[in-house]
């Protein structure tokens, strides 16, 4: 039989563990048991100035940020995260892209982030790229969904549903933006995607919030 001193050590450790367990702050979330719906991106009005592009949105986003994207000559998606002020965004010369996504038709390939600490691994000027995209009629615009910065909707889905039949998947739209696409069949209505979406792209089917 174990001697008394080890039993004492065991109880001391158990006591400390219980203090940590009950003393720590943990957050519980409540998920609505509803189907989600994907809300389209706000419409865009585009004005080109001297070394500056002004983009006027028809509605804001939940967290005040939006992705501006443009396709490059290599067919890849270049984007940057921008703050929205008074429903408008400015893109200036010297604003470099934050990330690049390889696109194969509707399929999403490798994602590369272009900044290291406080310096760029590769600089792609978004102002120049958007001007080029306009000239060559490549896709460009804004995207409410913060993919690839955020993947919470698909993460929420993967935590509940098996990977072969995810109801929420990311796809490339006709205008080039990458948005979540929802398929009702197989959706368990857990509501995680609704609660976790930071940009308001995914909302309750029954009760969408006003943009």
């Amino acid at each position: 039989m174990m001697s008394n001193k080890y039993i004492n050590y065991f109880f001391i450790i158990l006591l400390i563990t219980l203090i940590i367990h009950f003393g720590r702050k943990a957050y519980t979330e409540f998920f609505p048991g509803e189907y989600p719906m994907v809300v389209a991106t706000a419409k865009l009005e585009f004005t080109a100035g001297e070394n500056e592009l002004n983009l006027k949105l028809s509605g804001t986003t939940k967290n005040g940020n939006i992705i501006i994207y443009a396709y490059g000559p290599d067919g890849n998606f270049y984007g940057m995260l921008k703050p929205v002020k008074d429903l408008s965004i400015k893109v200036r010369k010297g604003d470099n892209a934050d990330f690049m996504v390889q696109i194969y038709g509707r399929e999403i390939g490798k994602i590369s982030f272009m900044k290291k600490m406080d310096r760029y691994i590769r600089k792609v000027d978004m102002y120049d790229l958007i001007i080029e995209a306009r000239k060559h009629e490549w896709n460009y615009g804004v995207q409410n969904c913060l993919y690839p910065v955020c993947t919470r909707c698909t993460d929420g889905c993967k935590s509940v549903v098996s990977i072969e039949r995810l109801p929420m998947i990311m796809s490339v739209m006709d205008n080039g933006e990458i948005m979540p696409v929802f398929r009702k069949g197989g959706c368990p209505r857990c509501g995680k995607c609704i609660v976790w979406c930071p940009s308001g792209v995914i909302q309750k089917e029954t009760q969408p919030w006003e943009r």
């Binding site: 943990a26 957050y27 940020n65 913060l146 910065v149 993947t151 919470r152 930071p198």
Partner: peptide
């Protein structure tokens, strides 16, 4: 944004969020 990318790569799985 609470994308939880940091939690996924944490070697000791800390609940950063």
């Amino acid at each position: 944004i609470e994308c939880a990318a940091c939690e996924r790569v944490c070697p000791v799985k800390l609940p950063i969020l």
